[in-house]
Write a protein that binds this DNA or RNA. Sequence first.
DNA 1: ATTATTTATATGTTTGTACATAATAAATAT
DNA 2: ATATTTATTATGTACAAACATATAAATAAT
Lengths: 242, 242
Amino acid sequence: MKYAIDHKSPIPLHIQAEALLRKLIAEDDYQEGKLLPNEVDLAKKLAISRTTLRQAINKLVFEGLLVRKKRFGTKVAQAAVSSKSNNWLSFSQEMALRGIPIKNFELHVTWVYPDEMLAKFFEIKTDKKILKMERVRGRSDEPFVYFASYFHPRVGLTGDEDFKKPLYEMLEQEHSVIATLSKEEISAKAASTFIADKLRIGVGSAVLLRKRFVFDQGERPIEYNLGYYKADSFVYTVESTR
Amino acid sequence: MKYAIDHKSPIPLHIQAEALLRKLIAEDDYQEGKLLPNEVDLAKKLAISRTTLRQAINKLVFEGLLVRKKRFGTKVAQAAVSSKSNNWLSFSQEMALRGIPIKNFELHVTWVYPDEMLAKFFEIKTDKKILKMERVRGRSDEPFVYFASYFHPRVGLTGDEDFKKPLYEMLEQEHSVIATLSKEEISAKAASTFIADKLRIGVGSAVLLRKRFVFDQGERPIEYNLGYYKADSFVYTVESTR
DNA sequence: ATTATTTATATGTTTGTACATAATAAATAT
DNA sequence: ATATTTATTATGTACAAACATATAAATAAT
């Protein structure tokens, strides 16, 4: 069985099923219109009840990702307009898609007190320490991005995790945290001495600052992420309809 | 009982319940934050199972009309929480929202031959002239953005239009062109001599480049728009879910 | 007075079961 | 050959029952 469900996991089965379905329907076959396995069979295969499976399917139907037809089956909704912008790719995935090999330069984990803004975002007090992760990434000896991430205590990170793994995969599997919503702010900045040093560029050079506010399913704050990209090393693409 | 459910009706009970809830929560009390009756009681009162009632509530929760909180209850979502990012606002609207008065510095209309890229985007030949509009905007004597727009011949602009009016309003009313899709690319750049001059900043200073590819309802290309924003004068916000 | 613990109560999760209904395909009658 | 009836097969609707979990509020411990 390609994908499966973990009955021992604290993540609700219907949430797991939902995630699984999203993976499943990302496959080419389904994108091209192949019908999903029928509910009764799929439920049996995943060892969950049909009701639970239906809960997951319902959500995707509501989102407009799937369409159901009686007697026929369930399939991926043929996107009316071209593919929706997927801003959800992680950094390594994005780069991997473009065939650029990534290397971690510096990876640094500390505990810090949040500033006013961060405390407000996390809805915690400023005297409660939170985990900060910094990393510089790039190709070989040429760094092109500096990241700083702050994690909400709720996530339960100890600092000993393997941050070389894809982050959200790790959070999902080991900490039952599923990030579903992200609000981003993108702007251009002149590099500070700190950033200039990290990216090995001149002070005042152009950098792209990408702030990300990440939330879980309950819209609770999970992560605050800052990314300083060297000019031209990163292009942000968005598609919007009205 | 104020509202009730008809078990003999061919309309599914959860649909009836949904309609009933919509009526119920339209009442002032609920609009002002009163909690709905709890699920168990309400189900009993309506003589349907809790599962069925939940099906109805779920739909309204999906829609964002209701919010649930454990141990607390279910109530009407307080309208217009964080307004979803509408990337469709025109520049002047965006700024107006922030209370910044806008002034047009330079407004310049010419006919030019498209370069390779543009010809490809517009699906025309490079020997067909197209309309180019340039403008510098900002507050009083401090410019903060330089725009260059190229319009597809299909739009039928002559160059004599009043470009001081909101652009898309004008296109819609006078040229029956309805822009519905936009693909954007955002990156940081070092200012070229040309841009530095326009924005009155130093060469090499940080600018945000925002390329917009605009399409009409038939997904036909309409406009190609370049915006060079002075660092920190513009923040792009995006909200994405998965 | 403050902090920790318990309890009550709402929503959240999950299963098993049953029958209804729409749409197609196959079998049958005209 | 064409219309009609009859399975078949998928989703659709609905219930009862049980246990899990978050959290506000009450209570006990410090």
